[in-house]
């Protein structure tokens, strides 16, 4: 198989970028999309040119590293997978394929197709955890959790943090990402004590990072490799509303919901 690739090249976050066209030949049907790009890079290297920078690691759809917008869709034309799980047999021979990075203010470009997604980490640091010390935890069976509830929490927790939801959203919103974590922890008894502070802190962190707001178009769910449902965004909205009511009644509400833990 043969393809013409239109790839975004950009040297650094502040430099201007452009599309450069590359030919990928000797491509076999059984190659993954990233292996096809590996092939292009190997040829560039031998020719003394700089290879295309793109991110990858586990190549089995779980680490969340890979991040390509392929012909206008994050992670490409198939649903429920990451870029690394996309195989070339999915494309017609001779196709023109346009490859762009995730584009969002909160995800500055590092180089070519590699973006900086540390904004998502900072949102997690704002409250995406249960503040329990190591040691002294009660027996795992001390708190019973219904199977359905645990399964729903697991649905939400399966987020791989790739950021495709942000990339697909018209508003570059990270709501599905935040919703997944907030819902996961709000559904479990272990996450309940901090649910009020958590949702407020995470939403505020999300805003600080420059993500947009949710337009309820659900493009995020359409591209999510783990098919995380936008139902969790409704849960997040509910949690946030609840937090607003609870917090406004707190006698001495502190500025930062996690300040007491410092």
């Amino acid at each position: 198989m043969r393809f013409t690739l239109n790839i975004w090249r950009q040297n650094g976050p502040t430099e201007s970028g452009r599309f450069v066209s590359y030919e990928a030949d000797d491509v076999s049907q059984g190659m993954s999309f990233l292996e096809m790009l590996d092939g292009v890079n190997q040829k560039l290297l031998v020719a003394g040119e700089e290879p295309v920078a793109f991110e990858y690691d586990c190549r089995e759809g779980i680490c969340g590293s890979c991040s390509l917008v392929i012909d206008g869709i994050p992670h490409g034309p198939d649903q429920g997978i990451t870029t690394c799980q996309l195989y070339m047999r999915r494309f017609p021979d001779g196709a023109n394929i346009t490859i762009e990075p995730w584009r969002a203010k909160a995800f500055p470009i590092v180089k070519d197709l590699v973006v900086d997604r540390s904004a998502l980490d900072r949102v997690m640091q704002a409250g995406g955890y249960v503040s329990v010390n190591t040691g002294g935890a009660v027996d795992g069976n001390a708190l019973l959790i219904g199977k359905d509830q645990a399964e729903t929490a697991m649905d939400a927790a399966s987020c791989i943090g790739c950021g495709a939801c942000v990339a697909a959203c018209k508003n570059a919103s990270a709501m599905l990402f935040v919703a997944a974590k907030v819902s996961h922890l709000a559904l479990l008894p272990q996450g309940k004590p901090e649910r009020t502070g958590r949702v407020t802190a995470m939403i505020e962190a999300m805003d600080r990072e420059g993500f947009g707001s949710c337009g309820n178009q659900y493009e995020c769910e359409a591209v999510c490799p783990k098919r995380i449902s936008v139902r969790f965004i409704a849960t997040l909205n509910r949690e946030y509303r609840r937090a607003g009511i609870v917090e406004s009644a707190l006698p001495n509400a502190s500025e930062s919901p996690h300040a007491e833990s410092v």
């Binding site: 012909d71 969002a104 707001s213 178009q217 659900y218 493009e219």
Partner: peptide, 28 residues
Amino acid sequence: LSLQNRRARPRAYAIHRYRYASIASRTM
């Protein structure tokens, strides 16, 4: 909110395809 949203993606995609978004939702 629209201004904020516009700022959230300073550079548009060369190609952007929608999957679920209705025409109505894209023209609010």
